[in-house]
Amino acid sequence: MNWFLSWISGTILYAAPLLFPTLGEVIEQRAGLVNLGLEGLMLLGASVSFAVSFATQNAWVGVLVAGCVGLLANLIYAWLVVHRQAHQLAAGLALMFFGIGLSALIGKAYVGQMAPVLPKFQPFPSQALLFRYDLLVYVAFLLAPLCWFLLFRTRFGLKLRAVGESPAIAYAAGVSPALVRYIAAATAGILAAIGGAHLAVGITGTWSEGMTAGRGFIAIALVIFSRWDPLRAIIGALLFGSAVVLQLQLQAQGLGISPFLLDMLPYVLTVLVLLIWGRGVRYVAPASLGRVYFGTE
């Protein structure tokens, strides 16, 4: 029972750093941008938050600065694909490598160090160490319905989705596809970096190179799993969070299974989930996803 409770508790904790980038990518893809650079953004967020948290001895400042860096980094991506009309997949991969490299450079001095982490508190009294989360976990789960509301109940959300379906029609409706895509990319940049920051200064309190371990790509898979719906993204994030925690728990149990095999668990789950739910459903994916918009003339 104790094992089960700690599994649930851990699942929620590990779902949060996935939920942030997933929500960001949902918004970005709803505006028609595929961003394969999430991994790089998350790593940047992790290293910057750790470095700033270490220097200022305040984890919140770290998160804040990480968000700003994520925003700026993703604006580079947006500039490439919106104004320079670069291929989105190529630009995204470039962003990923940029993030991996820069985060390694920033974090070099901090490998093996400890930095202050975000304060944790419990929503209700219970056994020690269970369901104790930092504020960002709550924020992540509140953000999902907020994103849903933004996409489906606001004027801006309608315009954003229109840009993702057809920039030409959105333009005809008086929307600036470029502006909308910049805003979507900025939002996704902030969210992805905060996701990374949460790993570094929310969960582990350490920095190691490549510590996001592919979460940026899992987030992209989650977007497809969630059918571009922020509420379904919660389910996806919990599912993968649970796999990560299960893998940690199985390793701790000292079963006779190779840790490398166990490490594969979340990724195998990704493949399975995409096999089962990834089947194309008509008019679910934004119609102009990944397409370069050249303007009307």
């Binding site: 315009k159 057809s166 029609i169 008019y283």
Partner: peptide
């Protein structure tokens, strides 16, 4: 200039200049 994935209402709303910021 219709978006197939959206409903009639959403397609019409997109072109309404005085659509409120938050709509039901």
């Amino acid at each position: 200039t219709l978006i197939p994935a959206m409903t009639v209402a959403e397609n019409v709303a997109l072109f309404q200049a005085e659509l409120p910021r938050f709509f039901s």
